[in-house]
């Protein structure tokens, strides 16, 4: 994608899919690891393996791996890694919504700056 071109629907779709899969994977792992009835050591792993969260997380990551390859094959790498930084924001917002994690002023500043940077790259070509 040479500078100045707008982002194609396929690229935008892969980018969105990457955000959904990355956040979904992280949240699934968080749900798996945060289960306090799981016990310790090997028992904990058995407990997690018998429930869907761990596998949902693994599934998200496997598909994300392929989506990211497809995405990067369509955009310059330097732009791709910058656009991918939005995952940091997505996971923090999702953590706030689903797990009630707090957003301090410093976190909000960080989220806005990363979003601004991604917007500059995405809209500015």
């Amino acid at each position: 994608m040479p500078a100045g071109d707008s982002i194609s629907p396929l690229v935008a779709g892969l980018w969105l899919l990457n955000i959904v899969l990355d956040s979904g994977g992280q949240l699934a792992f968080k749900a798996a690891a945060g289960d306090e009835t799981a016990g310790d050591g090997l028992a904990r792993w058995k407990h997690m393996a018998a429930r869907p969260w761990l596998w949902l997380g693994v599934g998200c990551y496997v598909i994300e791996f392929l989506v990211w390859i497809a995405f990067l094959s369509l955009v310059p790498l330097s732009e791709g890694v910058l656009l991918g930084s939005i995952n940091i924001v997505a996971i923090m917002v999702a953590g706030r919504i689903l797990f009630g994690e707090k957003l301090t002023r410093l976190r909000i500043a960080g989220i806005l700056l990363v979003t601004l940077g991604v917007a500059i790259v995405g809209l500015g070509g």
């Binding site: 910058l82 976190r107 990363v114 940077g117 070509g125």
Partner: peptide, 20 residues
């Protein structure tokens, strides 16, 4: 210029999140 500007904002944001 666009990439450097975007990268600068993203890096500043990451540093903020690190401090947070």
């Amino acid at each position: 210029l666009v990439r450097v500007a975007g990268a600068s904002a993203i890096i500043a944001g990451i540093v903020c999140l690190g401090f947070a």
